[in-house]
């Protein structure tokens, strides 16, 4: 009886704590969601929670899709041209920026993973002189902050005439991502059972066959988890994109568009609420779809090979 009771109490405690943590954790996001549907004037004059207190606002809360419209389809702008006519124009929509972000992110995720997987295999299963030294070198690069590399790399790109091209930013992200990728994948790949690899070698498999037919399928969980990391990092990156491809509309990525959207003096910051939810969509899709491989890879185990 008392055992059962004790279990009940501890369950309650644990679950209660978890629920409270979840609420604290998601509350700001929820507030952001509510704010994204509120008109500009309301956002700047009252908190999002006031939409639930019907006593304060006599007419009840107001909701609008305007923020989403302005973010997706471009803001309404007006200017007067040299002839003195007022021109009503719509700002750039998000499609170009979205495609640019995709163009930057997919190669910048795939390239480092592939190189790192090769490298990790080499470090883990091939013996060549200087292996340890190289590996220590790679690990040491983990602690180098990317900011100190920006100016020297920009100078090199200038010499190679690469500034402003997508290749420039792919290479930059690849370089900045490689040390961590190599290190993570090395840890995983070096932990694979020696027996499997040895049996492959005995059957006459070359290193390349072993890599593509054994290592890659077996390392799917590690590859997927690093892909999630790298994808999110590149997708959310602003600094590297600003430095290497600049912010001209035809190359600007989503984060830059979002930053511009708030206006020269930050007067339109209310649009960030809707913008945040729109840019969140793709990372969420990536996360959940890779999550599937992540779990499946773990369950498949290594023995079936």
């Amino acid at each position: 009886m008392s055992m059962k009771r004790q279990k009940l109490v501890s369950d309650l405690l644990v679950n209660g704590a978890l629920i409270i943590l979840c609420i604290i954790w998601t509350l700001p996001t929820f507030g952001l969601l509510v704010s994204s549907f509120r008109p500009e004037d309301d956002v700047s004059t009252s908190g999002w929670w006031t939409v639930f207190s019907f006593t304060r606002e006599r007419e009840g809360p107001r909701f609008t899709l305007n923020n989403y419209r302005e973010v997706l389809l471009g803001k309404d702008m007006s200017y007067t041209n040299a002839e003195g006519e007022v021109v009503q124009a719509s700002g750039d929509d998000l499609s170009t920026a979205f495609l640019n972000s995709l163009t930057v992110t997919v190669p910048a995720t795939v390239i480092p993973i592939l190189i790192a997987a090769f490298a990790a295999y080499g470090f883990a299963w091939m013996s060549f002189p200087g292996r340890r030294v190289f590996f220590v070198g790679v690990v040491a690069l983990l602690v180098v902050p990317l900011q100190i590399a920006l100016i020297p790399i920009l100078r090199d790109y200038k010499t190679l005439d690469l500034t402003g091209t997508f290749l420039a930013i792919w290479l930059a992200h690849t370089g900045f991502g490689l040390p961590l990728a190599t290190y993570l994948l090395y840890n995983y790949i070096s932990g694979l059972p020696r027996d499997i690899l040895e049996s492959a070698f005995i059957d006459g498999a070359s290193h390349f066959t072993t890599f593509t037919r054994l290592i890659l399928p077996l390392s799917m969980p590690a590859l997927a988890s690093f892909a999630i990391f790298q994808f999110l990092w590149v997708w959310n990156d602003l600094l590297v994109a600003l430095v290497f491809i600049g912010s001209k509309p035809e190359v600007a990525v989503l984060t830059q568009r979002l930053q511009e959207m708030v206006g020269s003096r930050g007067q339109d910051w209310h649009l960030l609420t809707a913008g945040a939810f729109i840019t969140m969509i793709l990372p969420l899709v990536v996360f959940f779809s890779l999550q599937r491989y992540f779990v499946r890879g773990l369950l498949a185990g290594s023995v079936k090979g």
């Binding site: 920006l150 920009l154 100078r155 600094l239 430095v243 930053q259 708030v262």
Partner: peptide, 19 residues
């Protein structure tokens, strides 16, 4: 024309980076 909210940082990087 190219505009950025991070002008203060970027102009420094670009000038130092010979760009």
């Amino acid at each position: 024309y190219e505009g950025s909210g991070d002008f203060e940082t970027l102009i420094l990087v670009r000038v130092e980076g010979d760009d």
